[in-house]
Computed example of a mutant assay.
Amino acid sequence: GLSLIFLALVSAFFLSARPGDAGFKLVESFTLVLPAQPFAQALAVVLGALGAVQLYRGFGKWTNVVLAFATAMFVVGFLAWATSGGSFNLTGMLQDTVTRSVPITLGAIAGILCERSGIINIAIEGQLLGGAFAGAVLGSLYGPWVGVLGAMAMGVGLSALLAVFAIRFRVDQVIVGFAINFFALGLTSFLSQRVLTPYPEYNIVKPFTPYKVPLLSDIPVIGVVLFTQTYFVYFSIVAVVVTTWFMYRTRWGLRTRAIGEYPQAAGTLGVDVLKLRYRNVWIAGAVAGLGGAWWPIGTVGRFDQNITNGRGFIALAAVIFGRWHPVGALTAALVFGLAEAIQLKMSNLDTGIPSEFLLMAPYVVTLIVVAGFVGRSRAPKAAGQVYDASK
């Protein structure tokens, strides 16, 4: 409720102070025009009313829907303020949102697979970074598809370290995760400086070009946003669908959720808890490695030091925001992708906002999401707990 009131005040005193029309280009022949100032004033009234209702009696089961609607409208108001007197390609920004959600989506899937199994995976950042490095080197030498496989193998290797130390030696899982992150950062930075810099031919990848899905890519707006993308976008959507199906419709998924909630009970019913945890952590590593390959093979065509830039930790926030559900994690990844796409778009507009503040946008959104959902989301009960088969 207070958040909605705050957004209403921002709309009333900040967004409504800039007159002019904002143009949102959807297709070549159509541009949606919004009067920035009247829209911001109307938005302030609506957000204020929603905030008052939320404080007075709440929206019950519709709370998340109302919050999503209010957030979306505020984003539109902010974009109208930033674009007043001009126009920009809204469809292109939405396409960029979907593209930039890929590593966060795949990293979040990796986190869900681990935490649903009772293993806290703080090492997503390191797995993404290792996958990016392996994908760049092998992709440069043998082609992008070999680079993708190499990135997944690197992710499996780093996840194997997590599994051995967390499951076999029962080391604190959070400490192991951070250790793997620092190890991956140090190793890739060292190899980048010592190998890739003197031998640049090892760091030139021909990235995937966008693939247009026949017929579907011809749909206005949606066709460009969803069906004119690189293979990585399709990989991430398939990963969400497959993980959701197997997690909630198969015996493997039932056992995975059981060992993440009540491993002792699952063990007494004949489930090999340790074996299943090992297997799921390895699968999670492959998914995270695939997410890391997105940087050199899906976008920039090369590896740079610390190229992931904290996206693994944003993926952890997506796990919490998505309530440990693949579809929820995809939604969260799109939110973070939108924040990054807006930040890039704002840097090209004359908003008067310092570039340093714009660079903070994805991380500020992460803090807001974690602060708002960490207390209301329930993690698997056995996440982080050591399993002892003898008890």
Results as ranks from 00 to 15, higher is better:
P103Q: 09
I104M: 15
I104C: 12
T105Q: 04
T105H: 00
G107A: 14
A108R: 05
A108Q: 07
A110D: 08
A110Y: 01
L113D: 10
C114L: 07
C114Y: 03
E115P: 02
G118P: 07
G118V: 08
I119S: 12
I120A: 07
I124P: 02
E125K: 05
Q127V: 04
L128W: 00
L128V: 01
G130P: 03
G131E: 04
G131W: 01
A132S: 14
F133Q: 06
F133Y: 13
A134T: 03
G135L: 06
L138Y: 00
L138F: 14
L138D: 01
G139V: 05
S140D: 09
S140W: 07
L141Q: 08
Y142C: 13
Y142Q: 12
W145Q: 12
V146M: 12
G147K: 06
V148H: 00
L149N: 06
G150D: 06
G150N: 09
A153P: 09
M154S: 13
M154R: 02
G155E: 10
G155R: 06
S159C: 06
S159T: 05
A160D: 05
A160Q: 05
L162T: 12
A163F: 08
A163Y: 05
V164F: 06
V164L: 14
V164H: 00
I167P: 00
I167R: 00
R170E: 15
V171Q: 08
V171H: 03
Q173V: 11
Q173N: 11
V174Q: 09
V174S: 10
V176H: 01
I180N: 06
I180S: 07
N181G: 10
N181Y: 01
N181K: 03
F182S: 05
A184N: 05
L185F: 03
L185Q: 05
L187V: 15
L187Y: 01
T188V: 02
T188M: 03
F190H: 10
Q193N: 14
R194E: 15
T197Q: 11
T197W: 01
T197H: 05
P198M: 08
Y199F: 14
Y202Q: 08
I204G: 10
I204W: 03
I204Q: 10
F208Y: 08
F208A: 08
T209V: 07
T209H: 04
P210I: 07
P210M: 10
P210E: 09
Y211S: 11
Y211T: 11
K212S: 15
P214W: 08
L215F: 14
L216H: 10
L216N: 15
S217I: 04
S217T: 07
I219K: 10
P220W: 05
V221R: 08
I222L: 14
V225D: 15
V225I: 11
Q229G: 04
Q229T: 06
T230F: 04
T230R: 11
Y231E: 09
